[in-house]
Nucleic acid binder design. Structure first.
Length: 487
RNA sequence: GGCCCCAUCGUCUAGCCCGGUAAGGACAUCGCUCUUUCAAGGCGAAAGCAGGGGUUCAAAUCCCCUUGGGGCCA
């Protein structure tokens, strides 16, 4: 059975690159009716933190990548790594290294001066028995290094095809540090073996680790898994994606009001395409058609624009209930929002904003005026629509018509406005735009008459009156006009 | 610096394995349309095979080099 794993180290936020790796592992496993495991690589206690582990778990759960079985923590398996490091030592496939950091530093310096690539010069492999005993007696700290055998190491990568390394390029890397903690290579190989991992799917940046690990598998006499190295995700400047590129961690996308399904969809298509021209594909469908061999080789740039578009597609196709649930938490962050009092209004306006919002975070920003009178008039809007004195007269007329309106609905409201426009020989827009400013403070938004109907007669009258009073003193082309006062 | 990986519109990509396409789609951009505005929708435009050599009747596709980008050693 196919078994794969996602193995993040909890040393920072769960970023989109990691998430995509998890998604591909997950899709591959489910497509093959296999299992997907989560392994936390927390062997570095100083850098690993509980909070980061929680973020990984929450992030994966949020986006809908479910792991099988228990989470494996490397910090609980330190004994095992030691055991296998010593096994190699006993078998002569690894050796003690007494070199101090200073010595290693010096080797590096020398290599730099000679313009040669640094490789551990096997100082400790060449030491005599007496020398070693002496160093032991001195109590010198010692690491265990893996002895790289001669020859070449090649493997077939599911995405890149055949990749070959000359073993002479690889240094005798450390597998166990002086403090008995394992290095990445050792822990990874030991765990992958005992977890029965059949396919190692991870980022491109691990390609050069792969020959080292294969050599380790061979030394242990273990079966070598298949490898698939995913291309990296870069920022718009083609540099490795980092915080300066804006939102990169999954937590941020959640907070920015993205739907997990949309992010999942977007990330899955960043580097993989089903081949036809489909873009909006559900997780279930992807599981059916995912093919690791069709994953691209080339690094790709994370383009937030397309994600935003995709999110808006998912919003448009969501039920009103779903939109309500998702947007509620963003409304609740606004001090003007009172759930009990406002939830009915929120329900009513969802259809009006469904095609207008691209993220849920935008919703309360765009629709504040339905819940509070304390919106601000957009300056440009006033400059644009209130420079004609007639505006005030016509709006007064509209106001008095509304006052005597019995059935306050959008049809009747529209009739009033259109008639007034005709009577005054102006375009309907001449009334609609300033009215929108008065009622919403904004220049753009849903249909005005729908807004009015939901606002209700009393509120509409109040807002028009208030607005006219405030703006009446406004003189065309003068740069100062009344600041919005608070109510 | 050494080694490794990669290269189709600005971006994500289809086509490449198995040579013959008007190089297709999507995002973004720009027009037009609808319209009270903004969106959404509809229609349309602009935009690409990194460069150079081969191989071949024929190359985005196969081979080599250069250039560029990325990764690891750190």
């Amino acid at each position: 059975m196919v078994k794969v794993r996602f193995a993040p180290s909890p040393t920072g936020a769960l970023h989109v690159g990691g998430v995509r790796t998890a998604i591909y592992n997950y899709l591959f496993a489910k497509n093959q009716n296999g299992e997907f495991y989560l392994r936390i690589e927390d062997t570095d206690p100083e850098r690993s933190r509980e909070d980061w582990i929680k973020i990984i778990i929450d992030g994966l759960s949020w986006i809908g990548v479910k792991w099988d079985g228990e989470i494996i923590y490397q910090s609980k398996r330190l004994e095992i790594y030691r055991e296998y490091a010593f096994k190699l030592l006993k078998e002569g496939k690894a050796y003690y290294c007494f070199c101090t950091e200073e010595e290693l530093e010096r080797y590096k310096e020398e290599a730099k001066i000679l313009k040669k690539p640094f490789k551990y010069p096997r100082t400790c492999l060449k030491r005599s028995k007496e020398e070693i005993e002496k160093l032991e007696k001195e109590g010198r700290k010692k690491a265990i290094r893996f002895k790289i055998p001669e020859g070449k190491t090649k493997f077939f990568d599911l995405i890149h095809g055949e990749i070959e390394f000359d073993n002479s390029e690889i240094e005798d890397f450390v597998i166990l540090r002086p403090d008995l903690s394992p290095t990445y290579q050792l822990a990874c190989v030991v765990d992958d073996h005992f977890m029965g991992i059949t396919h190692v799917i991870r980022g491109d940046d691990h390609i050069s680790n792969t020959p080292k690990q294969i050599l380790l598998y061979k030394s242990f006499g273990w079966e070598i898994p298949q490898f698939a190295h995913l291309p990296m995700i870069l920022g718009p400047d083609k540099k490795r994606l980092s915080k300066r590129h804006g939102a990169t961690s999954i937590t941020e996308f959640k907070e920015e009001g993205f739907l997990p399904e949309a992010l999942f969809n977007f990330l899955a298509l960043l580097g993989w395409s089903p081949g036809d021209n489909r873009e909006i594909i559900s997780k279930e469908e992807m599981i059916k058609i995912f093919d690791i061999k069709k994953v691209n080789k080339r690094a790709c740039i994370f383009d937030i624009n397309k994600l935003i578009w995709m999110n808006s597609e998912y919003i448009k196709n969501s039920t009103d209930e779903k939109i309500l649930n998702e947007s509620l938490k963003f409304f609740e962050k606004k001090e003007w929002f009172e759930k009990e009092r406002h939830i009915e209004i929120l329900k009513k306006i969802i259809p009006l904003f469904k095609t207008r919002i691209r993220t849920f975070k935008e919703f309360p920003e765009f629709a504040d005026y339905f819940f509070t009178r304390e919106y601000k008039y957009e300056k440009e809007g006033i400059d644009k629509y209130f420079i004609y004195p007639e505006v005030f007269e016509i709006l007064e007329e509209v106001l008095s018509e509304i006052n005597i309106l019995n059935e306050f609905n959008k049809e009747n409201l529209e009739k009033i406005v259109r008639e007034k426009a005709k009577e005054n020989n102006v375009k309907t827009a001449f009334i609609i735009h300033p009215l929108r400013i008065l009622l919403t403070g904004k220049q753009v938004g849903p249909g005005l008459f729908e807004i009015m109907e939901i606002l209700g007669k009393e509120e509409v009258i109040f807002r028009i009156k208030r607005g006219l009073e405030e703006l009446r003193g406004f003189i065309p082309y003068k740069t100062s006009y009344p600041e919005r006062t608070k109510f």
